[in-house]
Structures are given as structure tokens and as C-alpha cells.
């Protein structure tokens, strides 16, 4: 049984090749909860979208490779849900200005990523402001 205070922390370089590692870790952590296989698949997409958004949008183009600070992912497995926090030290943004469902199929991939997060998870909270990095908190509850 997963307790409320337990967490698993993962820190990855800000590069797309490590996002699959996050999915692998998540699968192991979420298996310690009551989430179904389908629930876990939803969380895998949502967490990957959060990480990919950081890699694609959180830093100026000239900040590449190891010049970028890493991404921190913390999983909080509970009996009937999992809470995931994805934190970066990027440039931050105004969450109110993010493109959502009305343009998810347009050119703004970040909008589609956030839209998928919101549809796949039970709760998504974005804490960000220009210049202060971003923290995304997501909760997925067991569907059965």
C-alpha cells in the first residue's frame, strides 16, 4: 500500500531522449497504486507532454544541451491516485495565454500537449510566471 508521504523523485537532462525514462519510472511507481493499465497509459502521455513542453518551450533557443538546467519529476503514489509534479527552471510563462482546445490542431504543439494533459488527467494545475520557471501538478485517480 502506498502512503501519502511517499515519493519517487527523478531528475533528467533537458533532452527528449530521456522522456522515455520518465515513462518507465512512472510505470513502476503507478503499479504500486490502484490505477488500471489504461489509467497508467493516460498518465504516461500526460507526463511526457509536460516534459516535452519544457524541452520545446521553456528555454531560449540559444540555451541548448547541458547549458539547460535539468527537469525534476516527482511521483507521489497513493492508494487510489498518483500525483505527479514536473518542475523546470525555464523562462516561465503566463498560463492564461496558453493556447488551448480552440487551436490544438494548429501549429502550436504546446497547446495540444497541455490539452491532452487536461483531458487525460483528473486535475492539472500550472504554476508559472515569466522569469520564474514552471511547476505542473497533475493528479490521476484510479478509474475503477
Amino acid at each position: 500500500m502506498a502512503g501519502n508521504g511517499e515519493c519517487v523523485k527523478l531528475v533528467i537532462p533537458c533532452h527528449p531522449k530521456y522522456v522515455a525514462v520518465v515513462r518507465l519510472a512512472l510505470t513502476g511507481v503507478a503499479a504500486r497504486t490502484d490505477l488500471t493499465v489504461d489509467d497508467i497509459e493516460d498518465v504516461k502521455v500526460a507526463v511526457s507532454e509536460a516534459c516535452t513542453n519544457v524541452i520545446d518551450h521553456a528555454f531560449a533557443d540559444e540555451e541548448t544541451g547541458d547549458k539547460r538546467p535539468p527537469i525534476e519529476i516527482v511521483f507521489y503514489p497513493r492508494d487510489e491516485e498518483v500525483l505527479v509534479e514536473v518542475t523546470d527552471e525555464g523562462s516561465g510563462f503566463d498560463p492564461k495565454r496558453v493556447v488551448l482546445a480552440d487551436d490544438v490542431l494548429g501549429d502550436k504543439q504546446g497547446g495540444l500537449g497541455l490539452y491532452l494533459m487536461q483531458r487525460l488527467m483528473d486535475k492539472v494545475e500550472v504554476q508559472s510566471a515569466p522569469g520564474s520557471g514552471t511547476k505542473i501538478k497533475m493528479i490521476k485517480r484510479a478509474s475503477r
Binding site: D38, E41, D42, V45, V104, L105, L112, Y115, L116, R119, L120
Partner: peptide, 16 residues
């Protein structure tokens, strides 16, 4: 696969 179809469906891309 159900998990992939779900991503197509909720994104509205399945028909497109």
C-alpha cells in the same frame, strides 16, 4: 491499440 486510439480520439485527429 486502445491507448493509442484514445489519444487519437480525444485530440480529434481520428477522423482527420
Amino acid at each position: 491499440r486502445a491507448n493509442l486510439r484514445r489519444v487519437f480520439d480525444i485530440s480529434g485527429t481520428a477522423e482527420l
